[in-house]
Write a protein that binds this DNA or RNA. Structure first.
Lengths: 263, 263
DNA sequence: CCCTTTTGTCTGCTATACCGGACACACTGT
DNA sequence: ACAGTGTGTCCGGTATAGCAGACAAAAGGG
C-alpha cells in the first residue's frame, strides 16, 4: 500500500519499522522498572506498542533465563531472580554502592532519620538506596525513580567540577520546572552548584516537597570528582542545631566512603 | 573447508545457525554473572563463541540502556546501574524477600549474631540477604553465591515436602562432596531432610566450614511449603542453652514472616 | 625497529526474527 | 444463549539483524 513516493513520510510519522528483539527487551525492562509492578502480556503489548505475538516469544525467552518471572496464575510477569544475582555481582564490582549503602544504613540507625545514597544516571538523579529512619516522618521519594537534577540538594553537589557550559548542555530546560510549577532560574542554579562545591555540602528546603529539608554530602573518587552523595531527608522544621549535628555526621560519612574508594 | 556434501554433519556437530540477539543477551548476562568480573569484548566473543561484530552492536545497545557499563579505558564491560534498579524493584515486589530481610536485620540486631535469609535458585542454595552481627566472629559465606544444597542446614529444610525421588533427581551427585573432600551419603542426607521437616528446624555443625554451626528455621507459604529459611551462623562452640535460645527466636521469626506471606 | 595481536568500524549478503492476522478457548455480563 | 473481551498459540511473508570478512589503527613485545 505505502508506495514508492512517500517513503520519507513513513519514516517521519510512524516509526513503525520492525523493532529488534533487543530493543524490545530494553523497552520491557525499562517499563517494568518505571511501573514497578507486574503486568499482563496483553496489557504490556498495548503500553509499549509491541505486537502480542512477539512479546509472548520474547518474554518466554526471558522467563526461561530467570530475568523475568510469571507472578500469578493470570500470567502477569515481573523481574525474576536472575536480576537479583546480576545486581549482586554489580554491587561487588562497585565499592561505591556497597560501601555507600552500608554507611547509609549506619547513619539511619544511629540518627533515626531517613538516609539515602544518591547518584546520577545520565542527566537524571536517582536514589540508589534508601534507609527509612525510626521517626514517624514519612518521606515521599522512592528508590530508582529518575528525577530532574535541579529538584535536589544532591544534584547540586553531583555537578561540582563540571563547567557551566557542560551543565547547560546536560540539563534539559524543562527540568528546571518544579513539581508545583515554580521555575528555578538557571543562573541561580549554577550559583547553587558553585556554592555547594565550595562548602562541601548542600541544603535545600521545600524544593521537591513542601515540608521537607534535604541535607547532602558528597562522595568523591580518587580524582576528587563527586560520584555520589549521601543525604538525610528530614522535616523542614527540624531545629538548626540538630541540622548542624546531622550535617556533621553526613560529611564524616561521605569522607569515610570516599576514603574506601581510594584504598 | 567444510564443503557441500557434509551439510548434515555440520548441523549435528556445531549448531552454528545464526543466533538471535536475545539469546546473545542472555548468554552475555549469564557469563558475567558466573565470572563476576569485567571482560573485554574480544575476549567475551571467544568465551561465548559469538562473532565480534555482533557483540559490538549488542553490547553497544545494552550499554546505552545502562544494563552494561564500560568499566575501564581498555573497554572492558560489566553490569551497569540499570540492573541494580531492576533488582530493587524485584525486591519490592517480593514480600518474601522484603519481610524476610527485615526480620533478619531485626534478629541480627537483637541477638548480635550474624543472620541470613536463604532460598533456592534452581538446584542450588543461595544467601539472599546477610546481616552481620556485632560479635567478632567472622563468617565466610557471601550473598548471591550459589552453593550445593547438601552443604547447608537451610538446604535440608528447603527440600521438605519433596519426595525422595524428586530430591534424587534435583541434586547432582557431585554436590554431595563437601569443600574439604568428605562425601555425604545420600541416604544420610535424605534422613536429615525428613528429620528437619518433622522437627521444624535444622542444625548443622562443621559442614561447609569447620568452626561454624548453622541454625535454620523455615519460612513457609500459604500451602505450608518451605520457600526460604532464616538462619544464624555462629561459632561451633556456642553453649547449648544459648543455641536453644537462638533457635527459639529463629522459629518465631520464621513463623512471623510466614504469617505475613499469607496475609 | 618490525612483527604480531587486538580493537573498533564498516559493508554487503542472506537466513530468519519479527510481525500481522487468524484461530481456539476461557471468561463475563446481560 | 450470545456477544464482547482477553489470552495463548500458530503460520507464512518479508524487512532486516546478525554474520563473515576486510580494514585501519592502536597496542604490545621482542
Amino acid at each position: 500500500m505505502t508506495s514508492q513516493h512517500d517513503g520519507a513520510f513513513d519514516r517521519m510519522d510512524q516509526v513503525q519499522a520492525r523493532a529488534r528483539g533487543i530493543d524490545r527487551v530494553v523497552e520491557i525492562l525499562e517499563f517494568l522498572r518505571a511501573s514497578r509492578r507486574p503486568i499482563g502480556i496483553g496489557d504490556l503489548a498495548k503500553r509499549i506498542a509491541a505486537p502480542r505475538s512477539s512479546l509472548y516469544e520474547i518474554i518466554g525467552r526471558l522467563t526461561e533465563a530467570g530475568i523475568l518471572e510469571t507472578v500469578d496464575q493470570e500470567g502477569r510477569v515481573f523481574f525474576g531472580r536472575a536480576v537479583y544475582l546480576y545486581a549482586d555481582a554489580y554491587l561487588d564490582s562497585q565499592p561505591l554502592v556497597r560501601n555507600g549503602r552500608d554507611e547509609v544504613i549506619r547513619l539511619a540507625e544511629t540518627t533515626g532519620e531517613t538516609a539515602q545514597l544518591c547518584m546520577l544516571i545520565g542527566n537524571k538523579y536517582t536514589v540508589a538506596h534508601m534507609q527509612p529512619g525510626s521517626n514517624l516522618f514519612r518521606i515521599s521519594s522512592e528508590t530508582g525513580i529518575l528525577v530532574p537534577i535541579p529538584w535536589t540538594a544532591s544534584g547540586r553537589l553531583l555537578l561540582a567540577g563540571m563547567s557551566e557550559a557542560q551543565i547547560r548542555a546536560l540539563i534539559p530546560p524543562e527540568d528546571y520546572r518544579l513539581p508545583d510549577g515554580r521555575r528555578i532560574e538557571i543562573e541561580d542554579f549554577l550559583h547553587d552548584v558553585r556554592d555547594a562545591h565550595a562548602r562541601g555540602f548542600a541544603v535545600t528546603t521545600a524544593l521537591a516537597d513542601e515540608f521537607t529539608t534535604c541535607l547532602a554530602a558528597p562522595v568523591v573518587d580518587a580524582t576528587d570528582r563527586p560520584v555520589a552523595t549521601i543525604c538525610f531527608v528530614i522535616p523542614a522544621r527540624t531545629p538548626e542545631d540538630r541540622q548542624a549535628e546531622l550535617m556533621e555526621k553526613l560529611i564524616a560519612g561521605g569522607r569515610a566512603v570516599s576514603r574506601q574508594l581510594r584504598g
